[in-house]
Structure formats: C-alpha cells, structure tokens
C-alpha cells in the first residue's frame, strides 16, 4: 500500500474562552492519498475551517489557542515547524482557498500582484514569466479580459470573480494538496459548475490531492472520493463517498442526507434537524450530537468508540446505538 500524502492524526484544537479551555475539535483523523479528494461536511461552526487552517499552520500562535496532535505532510509534522520552515511548504506544496472572498484579497494591491507573488517567491520566476503565468491562471478560472483584469484592484471585481481570483492564487504554484474552504458558496450555479469542473480538471492534470469543505451534498457527490462528516468538532462518520450516500450509519449523517431537497420526494416542507448546535462553551460531554439525536440513550454521555462498518474497511462512525 502506498503512503498517504497528507495525514492528520488526533488533531484537537482548543480555545480559551473567558478563562476556560473549550475544545473546538476533538481527535480529528484523516488520510489523503495522492490525487484523492476528501470532502469535509458538517453544520456551521463544527470546526471545518479551523481544521483546514491548522493544516497550513495558519491558526495564530497565541497563548489562548492550543493545538494537539499531528499534521503530517510527506512524513513531516507541520505543527513542529517554525513559521519560516512552514513558508517552504505554504503557497507552494500546500495552498488554501479561503471561505471569505470579499475580505481575503488585499485591497491596495492589484490582482495580478497578488497572484504572481507566490510564483516569484517559490518558483523564482522573472517578473515577465510570472505575469504570463498569472494571466494564464486568470484565463483558466474564466475571468474575461484577463490581460486587462490583471492590473486591476479587487474592488473592481464582483464577489464571484474575487472567489475565482482566490482560486487562481491558490493554484498558482500547482500545489500537491489544495485546501478549499467552501470555494463555490459565493458563486452562482453556472459558475459553481465551472469551478468544480476546473478543480477536477486540475486534479487530473497535476495529480493534486484536495480537501474540500462544503455544505453542499451535491458538491460532495460530484467531487468526493472520501467524506468526513463532522459535528461539534468531532468526526462522527467517515467513509468513501459511495458508501456514505448508499448506507449512512450515524443518525446525524442520515438526517443530513434527508435534509437535501429532492424533486422525487414529494414533501411540502424541507426536512430539518430539530434543535441547535451546542455552543463551544456548552458542548455536552460524550457524544456531542446527543442533545439532538433521536436514538439518544444513557450511554451517550460517554464518547462513543469508533466503529467500523462490517464489510467496509474504510467506513467508520462514532455512535453507540446504530
């Protein structure tokens, strides 16, 4: 068996809120093979973005943030590296598309400058080469009049176009692993399809692996090889994409899949999961979904073990009652 390119082991991230440590993610584990796409899904606030950010060492190194576990890229634990050492990987081997396209671009630098920066730093290109590559990238993400747009500022771009610029920035150095945090949320449906298509194409061309964060189960179905379902900072189910859609195990996953509106199911209202996500400070001990679960029992006050589905080696879930 080949080694995974990227590997997260028992990643727990805690924040100190009002003097109390709150665990925002608990023992997150995943592997990523070459050319594989992993989707992370889960409700807002369940810790998807911070997981991805800690994979690039982007969570601020402050006293009120504590990270445990390992983030291994080609066997190197990125959490042990200094900022300077991390910079050899970031933007080059590893890159990230951020969730907030409106604020993630620097307002006082031209779009071209922001795209070519990493080329100049990592690929030691000349200005002219970088410019050429930059314009090519803008064309690739379907920005019309790329040549002209290259020297414009972010405020002259719409939200969707900014998101595509972000994508161009992340792809500039042809990363080995791309972290894409809801890259299509700000886009309209046609552009969304184009962007997904583009990402798939790149994946084919460059053997890139990808971690994609999304709320959209449709996106999952179209790009994912593997899926990680998170709830309240815990991975509650992970499996291949096919197995997850065919045979979800965890009650939360089932509810999530049921919440997708489908034309073939004639229902008058959209199904939703009753109750609300607990806050960071008010996480129940044990299974964090227990406050909203239909199958809840006394056992749920203890953290459930990871169970493996019979006959499906890479299909795991955390639940006492399935």
């Amino acid at each position: 068996m080949t080694e995974p390119v990227f590997c997260v082991k028992d990643l727990s991230i805690s924040f100190k809120l009002n003097g109390k440590w709150c665990q925002a993610t608990q023992n997150v584990n995943f592997d990523l093979m070459e050319n594989e796409t992993l989707c992370i899904v889960g409700e807002s606030g369940c810790g998807k973005s911070i997981t991805a950010m800690s994979c690039l060492g982007l969570l601020p190194k402050k006293k009120n943030i504590h990270i445990e576990g390992q983030v291994l890229y080609k066997g190197v634990n990125l959490l042990d590296l200094t900022e300077k050492e991390l910079n050899d990987y970031r933007g080059d081997d590893l890159s990230m598309i951020f969730q907030e396209p409106m604020t993630s671009l620097n307002p006082v630098l031209t779009v071209g400058e922001q795209i070519t920066e990493s080329l100049l730093v990592h690929k030691s290109m000349t200005k002219a080469q970088a410019r050429e590559t930059g314009i090519e990238l803008l064309n690739k993400v379907k920005i019309p009049e790329a040549e002209k747009r290259f020297s414009q500022y972010p405020h002259q771009f719409s939200g969707g176009m900014r998101q595509r610029v972000m994508i161009a920035i992340a792809l500039a150095c042809k990363p080995t692993v791309l972290f894409a945090d809801e890259p299509t949320t700000a886009l309209d449906v046609t552009i969304q399809a184009q962007v997904l298509h583009l990402l798939k194409e790149l994946r084919r061309e460059t053997k890139m692996s990808m971690v994609m964060i999304t709320h959209d189960m449709g996106v999952v179905a179209s790009v994912a090889d593997k899926v990680l379902v998170m709830y309240g900072g815990q991975v509650i189910e992970n499996s291949s994409c096919k197995d997850l859609f065919e045979a979800p195990n965890h009650p939360y996953t089932k509810a999530l899949l049921n919440a997708i509106p489908r034309p073939d199911r004639h229902i008058d209202h959209l199904t939703s999961i009753p109750g609300q996500v607990p806050t960071l400070a008010g996480m129940p001990s044990g299974c964090r979904f227990s406050t909203r679960c239909e199958l809840v029992s006394d056992q749920c006050a203890m953290t459930p073990d990871v169970n493996t589905v019979a006959g499906q080696q890479s299909h795991h879930y955390r639940c006492w009652n399935v």
Partner: peptide, 11 residues
C-alpha cells in the same frame, strides 16, 4: 483576512 491569505502563500 488578507494577511492570512498572504501568510498562506508562504511569503
């Protein structure tokens, strides 16, 4: 956020 972006480029 754009400072985070700049960091993510490995500058």
């Amino acid at each position: 956020d754009y400072i985070r972006t700049a960091k993510s480029k490995g500058l």
